[in-house]
């Protein structure tokens, strides 16, 4: 990050000073504003509960939710771990499957033409509609959930990576040919690195999706009462009108989603920062 502060001993005119102040304010505002709005909203939520005397089983006060999170920590975090396991395994499979298929596609136009439509079919069919089928054909509980999470998460990785592998500078391909590069060398030294920014963009989307896939799968499977992930806690809490726990579980899912996104953004930034435009700071 470049320093925004003017170096000492430099005299700035009014316009540059204004710009410097603006940049500084923006940097602070980027963090302070969302946090302030969040605190304001939570405060308002709390007041509304009190003013309208809303019963706890309909809308618990934020403090109560926090207490529940603490009180039920063992149960909730245990469930979170179950959900996280499915999420990350699903994401790992999505990366392996998405990148693997994309590489296969670039090796042969014919394979791409034959298989890509099926990937789209898998993508556009709602997962809740597919799940009953999976339920029939797959016995293993973990395998069911994984399959669900995978189906939801793999498409952005596949389509982004395919696009990236194919958007290589023609001249560079000629250069590789001229130097007698093998297919494998072309893939390893040219196409895969060139696809990296595209892949990472897909990964950021897939991270969130695999969490959604895992939770949705648990929801549908949880009707059978076998699952112990966060979704089943939510269903359970819903039956028992235990709204505080329901909110606490919901809170955990959201925070998890945000953390996954932030971590993947950071990973992407670290990988791309030395060379890719998207990682450069906007100069004005």
């Amino acid at each position: 990050m470049t320093a925004i502060e003017a170096r000492p001993g430099i005299v700035l005119d009014a316009e540059e000073r204004r710009r410097l102040r603006g940049a500084r304010a923006e940097r602070i505002g980027r963090w302070v504003l969302p946090v302030a709005i969040m605190i304001l909203a939570i405060g308002l939520w709390d007041r509304i509960c009190v003013w309208n005397e809303i019963p706890q089983y309909i809308l618990p006060r934020p403090g109560v939710v926090l207490q529940t999170l603490w009180k039920d920590a063992v149960l909730l975090f245990g469930s979170l771990m179950v959900t996280l396991r499915i999420t990350f395994l699903g994401l790992a499979l999505a990366v392996a499957g998405g990148v693997g298929l994309a590489v296969l596609f670039t090796q042969s136009k014919w394979v791409e033409m034959s298989l890509f439509p099926f990937a789209i079919v898998l993508q556009v069919t709602p997962i809740v509609a597919i799940f009953p089928l999976i339920n029939i054909y797959v016995d293993n509980q973990t395998a069911k959930l994984l399959l669900c999470s995978w189906i939801v998460a793999f498409f952005p990785i596949l389509s982004n990576t395919t696009l990236g592998l194919n958007s290589v500078d023609r001249n560079l391909i000629d250069l590789f040919k001229l130097n007698g590069a093998t297919r494998w060398q072309q893939l390893w030294h040219l196409r895969l690195p060139a696809a990296m920014p595209y892949f990472l963009g897909g990964l950021k989307i897939a991270g969130g999706l695999s969490l959604i896939g895992a939770v949705v799968a648990e929801f549908v499977a949880g009707a059978g009462g076998q699952s112990s992930g966060l979704a089943s806690r939510i269903i359970e809490a819903g039956y028992r009108l235990n709204a505080p726990r329901l909110f606490a579980a919901l809170f955990l899912i959201s925070v998890t989603g945000i953390v996954i996104f932030l971590v993947l953004t950071l990973v992407s930034h670290l990988i791309l920062r030395r060379w890719h435009e998207s990682a450069l700071r906007q100069e004005r």
Binding site: D169, N171, D174, N179, G180, H189, P193, H276
Partner: peptide, 17 residues
């Protein structure tokens, strides 16, 4: 052999990474 030819394009076409 083919490696006796060098090519320079209009754009530098370097590997950005």
């Amino acid at each position: 052999g083919s490696d006796c030819v060098g090519f320079v394009f209009q754009e530098p076409t370097l590997l950005p990474w």
